[in-house]
């Protein structure tokens, strides 16, 4: 059962990935219609991630605008071997959101926010814009396959903006262990999601 589900979803994913890559190529050539389409395909993820990292819709909106303008400016520098179009755009989004959170919030404030944050992965009830219910469940199922320390390291880094050194300090764990947890966890997640 899970394999059938994954197979079907994988095919749809592949088509989406090909389409986004093609759109980004057109954007690099200055095609504004292609940019509008790319915007519609990616903005919910970019904005949602910014909200998650910053926990402030007004700031998240500013970041989302900066990210989309950066996509326009730098489309010519896009390297498809870095996670595809979506990988590149989400890298820009996560980096900008985290840079903002690091600049504006002290570590103590972030600790406080992190302590109050909701559980990782997609909460139910969020508008199903990009991932349908099946895909959200798949992400959640795959997150469940991680060990608790792997999940903690990944969410502290990606959603809360801590560096691996900060994660090591906060969790009182050797640096090498934290690095290994992040890499092993991401490999396990990649294999479970079947994205590569």
């Amino acid at each position: 059962m899970p394999n059938i589900r994954r197979g079907m979803s994988g095919q749809r994913e592949k088509r989406r990935k090909t389409r986004l890559d093609a759109l980004l190529g057109q954007v690099a050539a200055g095609d504004t219609a292609a940019f509008e389409e790319l915007y519609d395909e990616t903005i919910a993820s970019v904005y949602g991630l910014a909200v998650r990292v910053l926990r402030d819709p007004a700031q998240a909106e500013e970041i989302a605008q900066e990210v989309m303008v950066e996509v326009w400016r730098k489309a010519g520098r896009y390297d498809p071997a870095r996670g595809g179009a979506m990988g590149w755009i989400m890298t820009l989004a996560q980096r900008r959101a985290v840079d903002r959170v690091r600049a504006e919030q002290s570590a103590a404030e972030r600790d406080d926010l992190a302590a109050r944050r909701e559980p990782p992965a997609a909460p139910d009830g969020v508008a199903e814009l990009v991932l349908d219910r099946l895909d959200r469940r798949r992400v959640r199922d795959c997150l469940d396959h991680l060990t608790a320390p792997q999940l903690q390291s990944i969410t502290l880094a990606y959603y809360d903006g801590y560096t691996y050194r900060e994660v090591a300090e906060r969790t009182d764990t050797p640096l090498s262990t934290v690095k290994a947890r992040m890499r092993d966890g991401m490999i396990r997640l990649r294999d479970c999601l079947g994205v590569a």
Binding site: A44, Y47, V139, I154
Partner: peptide, 15 residues
């Protein structure tokens, strides 16, 4: 990177 992008997509919100 394709995997971390899915973590981002998993928290999508209406803009």
């Amino acid at each position: 990177l394709a995997t971390s992008a899915v973590l981002g997509r998993a928290v999508a919100l209406p803009p």
